[in-house]
Design a binder for these strands. Sequence first.
DNA 1: TCAAATGTTTGATC
DNA 2: GGATCAAACATTTG
Length: 263
Amino acid sequence: MPELPEVETVVRSLAPRLTGRRILRAHFSSRHVVRENFRRLAARLAGQTVHSVTRHGKFIVAALDSGNLIVHLGMTGRLLFDSPTGPHTRAIFELDEGTLVYDDPRQFGRIEWAPELPARVARLGPDAFLIAENDFLQLLRKRNARIKPLLLNQSFIRGMGNIYSDEALFQAAIHPRAIASRLSKARAQRLYRAMIDVLGAAIDQKGSSISNYVDSEGRRGAFQNMHQVYGREGEPCSRCGAKIRRIVLAGRGTHFCPRCQRM
DNA sequence: TCAAATGTTTGATC
DNA sequence: GGATCAAACATTTG
């Protein structure tokens, strides 16, 4: 489920119901999702009150009395209030009011506690939705890498994922293999605006519900209905009618219009 | 049976 | 260092 707009939507649904709540008990059942000792983590969380819930790139950070509960949803992670547990339930947080369940079929998600944001999280690039235009343009100029994999690189900017990278590049009419440092200023500005625009529109629509994505109240997003290229291989481009193509770049399916998006 | 899936990390190679 | 590519992680779905 997890690109910036989905994580932002989850955080917004989580914050009002989780802030001020006390974690009574926690239970864990996946060594892939929880890398530390289950009981030690549960003991660490028991009795702690949640002071805030925020987003850091694609990470969810719940500030506690002491330290932070940090959750990454991976590909298929979901946090759900008062949901029945199932075969893919990997964690349960019993609260003083209600229960928060973590479900994750593929178990690519992670749950951890840390006194501060771990270096590997704190060190990520600037947030894709908050970065200033000039900062973005300067970062692009320094990189001789292809633009699509670069947008996916969380050390470059944090929050972009496969769907929104393809959609932003389409909106900016830039080929996914274009070299970042060689983009003209006008094209780089177009990409910045497209990125902010696509992310903002997706947040407004509460994310893209492909596969199993829902927010913490179980509500689906609607932005999947507005995708112009992602998941539309072979369909006509909404702008020019050419067939949308799918290639593989950096191991990820990459969708684009070969006529609109030029090097 | 095979390919692909909203992500990240690690290692090999140039 | 960068950059590219492949593989790994684990499971479901078409």
